[in-house]
Design a protein around this nucleic acid. Sequence first.
DNA 1: CGACCGATTGACT
DNA 2: GTCAATCGGTCGG
Length: 211
Amino acid sequence: MGLLKKKSKESFVSLIEGNKLERDFYLQDTIVVAKELLGKYFIRKYKGKYLIGKIVETEAYRDDDPASHAYNGRTRRNEVMFWLGGHLYVYFTYGMHYCCNVVTESEGKGCAVLIRAVEPIEGLSTMMKLRSFNSSSKIFNLTNGPAKLCQAFDITKKNNGDDLCGEKIFIVDSKIVIKNSKIGKSQRIGIKDGLEKKWRFYIKNSPWVSK
DNA sequence: CGACCGATTGACT
DNA sequence: GTCAATCGGTCGG
């Protein structure tokens, strides 16, 4: 735990350089990507600094899945879901929130993994500012939900379609292996269809998982 | 065009 | 526990 903790900024940079996930990772099966993203570091370069969160909760949305935005085919909104794996699909919902997904598999498929929660590792004070975080609130509320983490990482529609193999937003292999017995599984949150599929994955015992 | 509603959150009873 | 906020996407007429 906490590979990045207590390391200097230079150490962050060197750790990042060698371990950024490459295209092949995202081209894998969507369920595999959803599980393997657990424990990895979601990184956003923001105003010359790094915002870093350890991914602790994901949900898979597959092309043959009635709960997926892509189920009824390509539209302007879900266009990015059909791009090559490794792009960022950001959608706007409830008139005020953004949620971010990692596009998976091959071009034209329409699969993605929703990132639902991260454990903040670096850049906490910036995240708090971005969320206008009330210090009387429990710290877990900083990033324990898909729209919360988008706000904390300043991810909005301007990032829809960003390439995770680029420099702005990317994911780094933490070398932390989450054993299968430590991965919780459940139905996905907030959907009506596809409830029989247990495609929400989270790190058991992590206090940073959404409520 | 108008109506409906959402892969959510925060405030409040 | 309940519920309003708030607006772009989607779909039916």
